[in-house]
Nucleic acid binder design. Structure first.
Lengths: 253, 253
DNA sequence: CAAGCTTGTTGATCCAAGTCAATGCGATGG
DNA sequence: CCATCGCATTGACTTGGATCAACAAGCTTG
């Protein structure tokens, strides 16, 4: 795996059992600047720690939840990578998002106590389980947490507006570029290179997300490579000319 | 206007000034079973009444808010019809939703205190202004309101998943049918006919929402009419065979 | 009520992306 | 170490929807 892992702090076999609880705390998690506890004071974060006890391992290909599952918890991605997808009656599926460390999934379940989409790990991953009832309860006591929850949901709405714009108004090549730049930005926020991307999904999954066929994704990438804007080798993409890529989106070619 | 108005309870020129506050109350609003106060007890609803004082008239074509505007309030549509849209740098726009009585708009602004889309009235409308700060404050005291706010945001996320499915995985004809059935259901929930629809948007706006061109919308409607599934006359649509229309979506043709 | 908009319909043509098919290439496992 | 399998690429051909264009049908407005 060519990508560095952000999580080197915690030896897998911590020999003091007591360390387990410390291990599952937001307070000393390196994602705390990105994840649920943004905007919380040290005190407040400790109160959140008390309910974020459970971590869960999800292996590549496993479902975190499925459409129809009862909703109990949100989950924050700690390591790894997920896709969420919705299904049409005849089996067609639409990937609605890709989710990485520090992002919260499961918001769709709050409304009617059932999940309305599937979440699948695209690589071996670890998530923090956030029991919704307790989270909601605490958020009525801790204003910053209340705000943060609203903010997370609102941001998800805004993100989806962006996807709708992409699906409804862009051509295939633009969609691919928009996706790559979005991924680049999210990786940069986490301290990774904004130029060297390792795609965690197949061309088919990416195509589903972008509303095009896998061959179209492949051709779009080849075209961008031919134009000298990036290098592709299977799932590794190096963005060679970020300004030019951004310009492709700024004005419609 | 061929559509009945749901609001016949309140004479425009109420002669007792005191009635104004009563007028702007959720407690005696006929939309209370659909709108913000769903799930609230009578007592709780009265507490919400105290912050939902302001109504605002928005004329056809007027903006309720614009991208970049500072965010202060959510708004609940009381009468009328709105579209929300996002813009691309080069001017292309994507309609992200159509909003009718009882629906709450402006959730996109919570995340970063600025609106990220435009909301425009498609007919003369009236909205209830819900000052966000006070709403958030009250929701920390009134648990049912807290739950309801989360539910509204979650439902919006789920709605958008549906639009992504539509934009990413359906063909033009299916998109039009999905839209009509969705509108039909929402009208039925409000006590209107599920068969007689009056579209409030142009073919172009509908096309933008559906990710196709206006001519394609027009052709799809003509095709459905030729097949005997509905009648179209400009903006009036009568659904003649709801089961058949639903079947078009259930299995891919 | 005629002139001029805006909106909607329909036809003819074109092209971006879909479909179908062959090939390549890395990983995995017997 | 070779066979297999899943994933990706590329080419040839097709097609659904876009584009361009003409026209119709309501509305405004003078």
């Amino acid at each position: 795996m060519s990508t560095p892992t952000p999580d080197q702090t915690l030896p897998e076999g911590a020999f003091l059992q007591g360390l387990q609880s410390l291990r599952a705390a937001c307070s000393n998690c390196n994602l705390r600047e990105l994840c649920l506890p943004v905007g919380l004071s040290a005190d407040e974060m400790q109160r959140v720690d008390e309910l974020v006890r459970t971590r869960r391992q999800v292996l590549r290909g496993e479902h975190l939840f499925r459409t129809g599952d009862a909703f109990h918890s949100l989950v924050a991605v700690r390591t790894g990578f997920f896709k969420t997808k919705v299904l049409l009656a005849d089996g067609r599926e639409q990937v609605t998002g890709f989710h990485m460390a520090g992002e919260v999934i499961g918001l769709d379940g709050i409304g009617n106590e059932r999940h309305t989409c599937d979440a699948v790990a695209l690589e071996d991953s670890e998530v923090c389980v956030l029991p919704y009832g307790r989270l909601a309860g605490l958020s009525r006591e801790v204003e910053a947490l209340h705000r943060r929850l609203h903010q997370i949901m609102s941001s998800e709405i805004v993100r989806e507006h962006g996807v709708m714009l992409l699906l409804g108004s862009m051509r295939a090549g633009e969609r691919v570029v928009a996706f790559l730049l979005n991924l680049s930005r999210r990786l940069a926020m986490r301290g990774y290179s904004e130029r060297d991307l390792h795609l965690r999904m197949t061309r088919e999954e990416l195509g589903s997300y972008l509303g095009v066929k896998l061959e179209t994704v492949s051709r779009a990438l080849s075209k961008l490579q031919a134009d000298g804007l990036l290098e592709v080798s299977r799932r590794n993409v190096r963005l060679l000319d970020l300004p030019a890529l951004r310009a492709l989106l700024a004005k419609s070619e």
